[in-house]
Design a binder for these strands. Structure first.
Lengths: 337, 337
DNA sequence: ATGAAAGCGCTAACAA
DNA sequence: TTGTTAGCGCTTTCAT
């Protein structure tokens, strides 16, 4: 029952050496004879010793842990990034502590504070859609905790960033639609607090501009991250006096909502109307018609983010802020001409 | 730059009180005057004090963290459970540390050791498909670290468990196929190290038996968690002298692989052949034909697991091992008659 | 109600 | 090469 854990002190007693010697032996310090080292390591194993990482962390002011905060764990994009983060972190000997904000500012704030107090060595942050200012993040930066923002970033903050080239991605996608002959291209965007959406909207706008097509307010709708919201937005578009000949959703889930609504109403895709998304979720290849989209290498975004943060953690000298922009790739499928 | 963190000692100095008083004030100890308490709390805020959870954890032997190990983070079932775990844990004031084994025993072992040394208060484990014995888990149990296994469990271990009723789920699903008129029902199962698969296979077998249908070796194929493996298995089934009139995949991803192959070869589903899966991934409602499957409430499985573990952590007396079996629900869709 | 002091398990000067 | 000692930041007896 109350079996106390074995400590280095127990080993020291057992072998009549000092705790310092045991500590040195176990942590591979050079100044120690091969003989005692072997003896200690062997004894440690025999006694089923396990180092207490809290104790050493307390002294070294390092927990070998990085904190991650994402809007939600169970959306494919985020679970992929988390997976990439965990993989890279693990390879570098770090553990990851993961929190989700559920797209709420208050939970994000709370979680960041919690992670910071838990002495994470660094923080990987993707903000919620509600987050409108950066005080809470500024606060951990002031506490000298290295922060890297990914995908959902705040430009004003003096931190390294990893994010998708949304502007050019959207631009490229809209050009693809235009090349396919679409002239009235609608865009379903997300909450306007999300920079990601603004950047994609801007890419959309600029692509129209380049090709001499007018930007029409009525072709812009807003929807949240779910099929139903997307379907409602789609209905509104279809009921326009002049309905669109293409719908570009800011995320695959939106485009898929649109496809579902269009199919239900008997539209032919892309015959009457083209549909395109952004992200390349797994479903996008499986739905009929398969969805044209910009592929985001979410796993790689996670890996890069973790790698960059760990670089900063292990750097000798304070690093300058770095920015890595990830190019999405056009995947032309059956939902567009 | 080298801005040292504020400690309770700093606050004590500032106010000419002892660290003990500060500690008591900050942790809401009863024996303290309202006046000094307020003063200290206020000063702490003013000085931007943040408690060092490693230091208090070292004394209290609690980290308020639970460790989670899953085969992989980026498969829907697992990311959903993780999300449920995080939500419940957060509500109870716990953080979660998440590792993935990548279905490798060695990484699982490594990660469990790492989490245990990090002083997690408890461990939530779903084993890898490679894991054939339980020494590594037995070891942490011996160290008095509460363990709960979920979904991928090892029955022999004296720990609480949460898992899907695979046997009855498969049984029910196969009955559904039989009621639809299928007589040569094939089953694509997974690695035979996975109990989950064995239980589903057993449910399949018993359902056939109940309805007087023969169990035929040639109708059983093995595939890994991906479309290609499922497609290959499907091809083998189709090339049989007497091909099946239904394919039941042990997971949705398998069933979807089968559908893809069948569609490519021009089979009509469910006209010529029915297909059913297990899990009810998001795609299953979206693919054509939509997939009949047993829905697993993955988010809830995560929540239940976390709740049960936290119960054990906070229980006054040592708890007896509990088992919670989650009933999956038949979702009959267009891929079966 | 408050303070002094011991100590959680470990590391890292400084000595020897 | 090894031991001694002083903490890391906090909680918790035991006094006062």
């Amino acid at each position: 029952m109350g079996k106390r854990n074995i400590t280095i002190k127990d080993i020291a007693n057992e072998l009549n050496v000092s705790v310092a010697t045991v500590s040195r032996a176990l942590s591979g310090h050079p100044d120690i004879s091969e003989k005692t080292k072997l003896l200690i390591v062997e004894t440690a194993r025999r006694m089923d010793y396990h180092p207490n990482l809290m104790a050493s962390g307390l002294i070294k002011k390092k927990s070998k842990t990085i904190g991650v905060i994402v809007p939600t764990i169970n959306r494919q994009f985020w679970s992929n990034t988390i997976s990439g983060i965990e993989k890279t972190a693990h390879q570098a000997g770090y553990k990851v502590m993961i929190c989700q904000s559920d797209e709420q500012y208050s939970r994000e704030r709370e979680n960041i504070e919690l992670l910071a107090n838990s002495m994470v060595d660094g923080l990987l942050i993707a903000i919620s859609k509600q987050t409108e200012h950066s005080d809470h993040i500024q606060r951990v930066i002031t506490r000298n905790i290295p922060v890297l923002m990914f995908e959902r970033v705040i430009d004003e903050l003096p931190v390294s960033r990893v994010f998708t080239d949304d502007f050019n991605g959207a631009f490229q996608l809209v050009e693809h639609l235009i090349h396919g002959g679409c002239r009235r291209i609608a865009h379903i965007t997300g909450p306007d607090t999300l920079k990601v959406c603004c950047r994609r909207l801007e890419g959309y706008r600029k692509a129209l501009e380049k090709h001499g097509l007018p930007y029409r307010e009525e072709l812009i709708k807003i929807a949240d991250f779910n099929h139903d919201a997307a379907r409602r937005a789609t209905v509104e578009l279809l009921e326009l006096p002049e309905p669109p000949d293409a719908i570009f959703g800011f995320a695959d889930i939106i485009a898929i909502g649109a496809i579902l609504e269009l199919k239900e109403r008997g539209y032919s895709i892309p015959g009457q109307i083209s549909v395109a998304g952004f992200g390349n979720d797994e479903v996008s290849a499986l739905i009929e018609p398969s969805l044209t989209t910009m592929a985001q290498p979410s796993f790689v975004i996670g890996q890069k983010s973790a790698a960059m943060l760990i670089d900063e953690l292990t750097a000798e000298h304070p690093q300058t802020r770095k920015t890595e922009i990830i190019k999405p790739e056009l995947i032309a499928r059956a939902s567009t001409r």
